[in-house]
Deep mutational scan, measured.
Amino acid sequence: AVSDRLIGRKGVVMEAISPQNSGLVKVDGETWRATSGTVLDVGEEVSVKAIEGVKLVVEKLE
């Protein structure tokens, strides 16, 4: 699937994400809805860990 190529890629949070609410991330110039187990603020760099349906699962870049 086209989304599989995104796993491991870096992105930037465009709309804040929390465990309760999905947000938006931009990866390779495309905007995706994303979820995370932690709070991520706009502008934070993330990496794509998995894909669930049409949402990316991301975590903060260390």
Score class of each variant (00 low, 15 high):
residue 1 A to N: 11
residue 1 A to T: 15
residue 2 V to A: 12
residue 2 V to S: 10
residue 2 V to N: 11
residue 3 S to W: 06
residue 3 S to V: 10
residue 3 S to M: 13
residue 3 S to F: 10
residue 4 D to Y: 03
residue 4 D to I: 12
residue 4 D to K: 04
residue 4 D to H: 08
residue 5 R to E: 12
residue 5 R to G: 11
residue 5 R to Q: 10
residue 5 R to C: 06
residue 6 L to S: 02
residue 6 L to F: 07
residue 6 L to G: 02
residue 6 L to M: 06
residue 7 I to S: 03
residue 7 I to R: 04
residue 7 I to N: 03
residue 7 I to F: 04
residue 8 G to W: 03
residue 8 G to N: 07
residue 8 G to R: 03
residue 8 G to Q: 03
residue 8 G to T: 03
residue 9 R to G: 05
residue 9 R to K: 12
residue 10 K to V: 14
residue 10 K to Q: 14
residue 10 K to H: 09
residue 11 G to I: 01
residue 11 G to F: 01
residue 11 G to A: 06
residue 11 G to C: 04
residue 11 G to Q: 00
residue 11 G to V: 03
residue 12 V to N: 05
residue 12 V to L: 09
residue 12 V to F: 07
residue 12 V to S: 12
residue 12 V to R: 08
residue 13 V to M: 03
residue 14 M to A: 09
residue 15 E to G: 08
residue 16 A to P: 08
residue 16 A to I: 12
residue 17 I to C: 04
residue 17 I to F: 03
residue 17 I to M: 06
residue 17 I to P: 02
residue 17 I to V: 08
residue 19 P to C: 05
residue 19 P to H: 07
residue 20 Q to G: 14
residue 21 N to S: 14
residue 21 N to E: 08
residue 21 N to H: 13
residue 21 N to M: 06
residue 22 S to Q: 09
residue 22 S to R: 04
residue 22 S to P: 13
residue 22 S to I: 12
residue 23 G to P: 01
residue 24 L to F: 09
residue 24 L to E: 06
residue 24 L to R: 08
residue 24 L to M: 11
residue 25 V to H: 00
residue 25 V to Y: 00
residue 25 V to F: 01
residue 26 K to R: 13
residue 26 K to H: 09
residue 28 D to L: 07
residue 28 D to E: 14
residue 28 D to V: 13
residue 28 D to F: 07
residue 28 D to T: 06
residue 29 G to A: 11
residue 30 E to H: 12
residue 30 E to T: 09
residue 30 E to N: 10
residue 31 T to Q: 11
residue 31 T to R: 06
residue 31 T to P: 05
residue 31 T to L: 15
residue 31 T to A: 10
residue 32 W to E: 02
residue 32 W to C: 04
residue 32 W to G: 01
residue 33 R to D: 10
residue 33 R to V: 14
residue 33 R to A: 10
residue 33 R to Y: 15
residue 33 R to W: 13
residue 34 A to L: 01
residue 34 A to M: 02
residue 34 A to P: 00
residue 35 T to V: 13
residue 35 T to A: 10
residue 36 S to T: 03
residue 36 S to W: 02
residue 36 S to N: 02
residue 36 S to H: 02
residue 36 S to E: 01
residue 38 T to V: 09
residue 38 T to N: 10
residue 38 T to M: 14
residue 39 V to C: 05
residue 39 V to K: 13
residue 40 L to V: 08
residue 40 L to R: 02
residue 41 D to S: 13
residue 41 D to N: 09
residue 41 D to A: 13
residue 41 D to L: 13
residue 42 V to K: 10
residue 43 G to P: 04
residue 43 G to C: 05
residue 44 E to F: 07
residue 44 E to C: 05
residue 44 E to H: 08
residue 45 E to V: 15
residue 45 E to Q: 14
residue 46 V to S: 02
residue 46 V to I: 14
residue 46 V to Q: 00
residue 46 V to D: 00
residue 46 V to G: 02
residue 46 V to H: 01
residue 46 V to F: 03
residue 47 S to H: 10
residue 47 S to F: 09
residue 47 S to I: 13
residue 48 V to Q: 00
residue 48 V to T: 02
residue 48 V to F: 01
residue 48 V to H: 00
residue 49 K to L: 13
residue 49 K to M: 07
residue 50 A to R: 12
residue 50 A to S: 10
residue 50 A to C: 05
residue 51 I to H: 05
residue 51 I to G: 03
residue 51 I to P: 01
residue 52 E to T: 12
residue 52 E to A: 09
residue 52 E to M: 09
residue 52 E to K: 07
residue 52 E to L: 13
residue 52 E to C: 05
residue 52 E to W: 08
residue 52 E to G: 04
residue 53 G to Y: 04
residue 53 G to Q: 04
residue 53 G to S: 05
residue 54 V to T: 15
residue 54 V to G: 15
residue 54 V to S: 12
residue 54 V to R: 10
residue 54 V to Q: 10
residue 54 V to F: 14
residue 55 K to F: 15
residue 56 L to E: 01
residue 56 L to G: 01
residue 57 V to Q: 05
residue 57 V to G: 03
residue 57 V to H: 08
residue 57 V to L: 09
residue 57 V to F: 11
residue 57 V to T: 05
residue 57 V to M: 07
residue 58 V to Y: 00
residue 58 V to K: 00
residue 58 V to R: 00
residue 59 E to H: 07
residue 59 E to M: 12
residue 59 E to Q: 10
residue 59 E to C: 04
residue 59 E to R: 06
residue 59 E to L: 06
residue 60 K to W: 04
residue 60 K to F: 04
residue 60 K to M: 05
residue 60 K to Q: 06
residue 61 L to A: 09
residue 61 L to R: 06
residue 61 L to H: 11
residue 62 E to T: 12
residue 62 E to N: 15
